[in-house]
């Protein structure tokens, strides 16, 4: 025990079972409890026990719990700025870059403003991995091969795929396996390799993309501003202190999963690696136009152009640093 302080017990609302996605916040809960000698506890409620995932922000605003996990794509309208991470072909596939950029964005005024209305404040990203596609049938070796494919892809990623001539379908994640096996979906995008494996997609797929990085989602943990405001300074400092190692744990969890999954993928499926030229073309044809469209649609809600520029600047900075 290194931190003295009063008894504080927090409730954190999330969905699903304990898994790689929750490793980071589990680590935080553990360390915080240990360092305060059990005085500050964060109890994690899984399986939507406290709230439906899509209503977690409502629960925070109402003061029903002190912290919650959320994903931006569950409710685009609740966090318009956070949707920027769904923009296709952002060059943030590298873990180091992704972590640096995301941590910077969690301090961005637009990100904070989105949460403000919900009496929430961004704390830690779950660093959901980049999406990749798994598919069945003809492998999309070049840009034009995506033309006519039926793909499961949402948000900016879906728009990008439409630009490439693909048809978007919205199949619930649990139904993707069947749909692909029966040929009603040709390719499905999921956080890679993590969610592909969870939904058993490799069993029915023929190929996978390994460096397309067509987009991602931003999921993470937010705190209630009221609950955070009541914390003594030493607890606030502690929460800040443990972030570095928690991010390490989080990233390692995904790397471990990749280590397990990737050999399977490579053994069973055809790996598709695009050349830097092809990726640049993807970005030019289906990336930038979608970014611009997104900016145009959101500029009146907040400074979307400014946010995009800031994000690109952070990416560049992080790439140089690594």
């Amino acid at each position: 025990q290194t931190v003295e302080g009063p008894k504080v017990s927090w409730k954190l609302s999330t969905w699903g079972n304990p898994r790689a996605f929750t490793k980071g916040i589990e680590h935080i809960a553990e360390v915080v409890k240990e360092r305060t000698g059990g005085n500050f506890t964060i109890e994690i409620f899984y399986g939507e026990a406290l709230s439906k995932a899509r209503e977690n922000l409502d629960g925070i605003k109402l003061g029903a719990f002190d912290a919650a996990q959320l994903c931006n794509f569950y409710h685009p309208g609740k966090n318009p700025a956070w949707m920027i991470f769904t923009m296709p072909f952002l060059p943030i596939g590298d873990w180091d870059v992704r972590e640096k950029v995301t941590r910077a964005m969690y301090k961005h005024p637009a990100f904070i403003a989105d949460m403000d209305g919900w009496n929430a404040m961004p704390y830690m990203s779950a660093l959901l991995p980049q999406y990749e596609f798994l598919g069945r049938g003809e492998p999309p070796l070049k840009l034009s091969d995506w033309n006519g494919k039926r793909v499961r892809a949402g948000g900016g990623l879906g728009l990008a795929m439409e630009v490439l001539g693909a048809t978007r379908t919205t199949v619930p994640a649990t139904e993707v396996y069947t749909s692909m096996e029966r040929g009603t979906v040709d390719a499905a995008s999921f956080p890679y390799t993590y969610a592909h494996a969870a939904y058993k997609i490799p069993e029915v797929a023929d190929w996978f993309t390994n460096n397309m990085s067509p987009g991602t989602s931003e999921c993470g943990t937010v705190f209630s501003k009221t609950s955070y405001g009541k914390l003594p300074e030493q607890y606030k400092a502690l929460l800040e202190d443990v972030l570095d190692e928690a991010y390490d744990v989080q990233v390692q969890a995904y790397i471990d999963i990749d280590k397990k999954n990737l050999p399977d993928f490579k053994a069973k499926l055809q790996e598709i690696l695009y050349t830097p030229e092809q990726l640049a073309e993807f970005q030019k044809v289906a990336g930038t136009p979608v970014w611009d469209q997104w900016v145009a649609e959101n500029q009146e809600k907040f400074d979307a152009r400014g946010l995009l520029n800031d994000l690109l600047a952070e990416i560049e900075k992080a790439q140089k640093g690594s």
Binding site: F73, P76, G117, G158
Partner: peptide, 16 residues
């Protein structure tokens, strides 16, 4: 709340 702070459906982003 859904009206003031924005809430939308997942795919088509219709107001909730």
């Amino acid at each position: 709340r859904a009206y003031e702070f924005g809430d939308s459906t997942i795919d088509a982003e219709y107001p909730m």
